[in-house]
Nucleic acid binder design. Structure first.
Lengths: 235, 235
DNA sequence: GAGGCAAGGTTTGTATGCAAATTTGCGTGC
DNA sequence: GCACGCAAATTTGCATACAAACCTTGCCTC
């Protein structure tokens, strides 16, 4: 087969099983769902997908099972369709991220090794020197920053869950928005998080991370023009 | 086919796709993994499973994809094996639950409807009247209690994530152990959570829930005889 | 002209076929 | 007795086959 893996915006949690076709199919379909190339509620016809990707139905079906488990695809009476995310579900996901990344930040502050913390600080400082025009680098260092904190938490399950939740931001037109303005605003928030980490103050780190994610999503609603659901602010 | 669905301890998040064979297979295999009937690291031979369950390899393969995505099964160079959970991974999962259920409790306190809260209180009080010998009812009301809080959080994504994480507690011999002593200690913890919910104090509810889960796992280590990993206490 | 029924075409859900790749077992040589 | 290597037997990964369920469409009837 010749699944055309053109270069695309790096995405977290690509899931390559050791040399298995269904894994390539998974990554391609996930990207197409997540970027909106496959529209919400669009029915997914196995044979169509198989022909487009030059594989048989078998890997496609296996991949659909995983997408369904990931929550990106929903079962219909017959077959599958791309899941549609309502604004409320996006809010719910933001809250999920606040729970997970907030806790990760708290663990990082408490038990991250000195070199873990140093790595986070380094990423933060590198980020401060970026020219505002270099969007790609900003996206990357932002991800690096959050990744480094997760890693410092010393909890792989938590990290997995965060990656998982990350699959939900991107649904058209979310991808563009979350990589756009949000990133310009982040530095002040990041500085607060870094300060808490350096003080080894878990509670402060958790608060700062939650506030950061919440602010990010406030931007998101504005940029996308979606109506912000009520109760984004839990406390 | 005649997958023998004998009565088993109720498990969260049975995942029945609308009338699909692979879904029954999924629930059976998940249970067998989680109860230890299928041992950690045991290779899963497709044809074996298919014959045991009286289905063909196709639904088995699809089900394995979902189990892999759930993290209960890991890919080998060739085929799959039951994932082995180390004590450290179990600790990580406990922390994940603390993050998720703690946040759910906080949301429930802040925005749960009066009837949501009343339902939680009712479950708690029913639970107080149970005879300690009635183990099955205790297990059930415990689950009801946690479920009701999740529901009161008004966040389905969070709820899903909690259910998901729930798949990991039970690995032999966990299931039996968690129905024993833990439950006796639970009532006092539950009372603290209920009090915070009634006061609509999100931060207190979150603290109480985290402490409850942590205590549960402290019991777990003792009962199972596994070595408790360091750093269970994050603050 | 509208509604219902039926027939045909899709599309799925499951089963099976086939070749490749890995593992197992045995024999041989050291 | 141990190690190495070759061959046979599993067992997978992918493809395809087949029947049942479903949807569409067109025709017939009222």
């Amino acid at each position: 087969m010749q699944i055309c893996v053109q270069s695309w915006p790096a995405m977290p949690h690509d899931d390559p099983l050791p040399s298995r076709l269904s894994s390539d199919v998974y990554n391609v379909l996930r990207r197409q769902i997540v970027t909106g190339e496959l529209r919400p509620n669009q029915p997914l016809i196995e044979l169509d997908l198989a022909e487009r990707l030059q594989v048989s139905r078998t890997p496609v079906r296996e991949c659909l099972q995983r997408l369904a488990h990931a929550g990106l695809v929903v079962p219909r009476k017959r077959g599958w369709a791309v899941r549609e995310f309502t604004p409320d579900e996006i809010r719910q996901n933001a809250e999920l991220r606040m729970a997970l990344e907030g806790y990760a930040a708290s663990l990082a502050a408490i038990r991250g090794s000195p070199s873990d913390i140093a790595a986070i600080v380094a990423i933060h400082e590198r980020r401060l020197t970026l020219r505002s025009s270099d969007e790609e680098k900003r996206v990357k260092t932002n991800r690096d920053f959050h990744d480094a904190i997760m890693r410092a938490s010393g909890n792989g399950r938590l990290t997995d869950a965060i990656y998982h939740s990350g699959q939900f931001y991107f649904n058209a037109p979310i991808a563009r928005a979350t990589t756009g303005e949000e990133l310009k605003l982040g530095n002040a928030d990041h500085a607060l998080i870094v300060a808490a980490l350096l003080k080894r103050d878990g509670a402060a780190a958790e608060r700062a991370m939650r506030a950061h994610i919440q602010r990010t999503f406030a931007v998101f609603w504005r940029v996308t023009g979606l109506a912000e659901p009520l109760h984004v602010q839990p406390r």
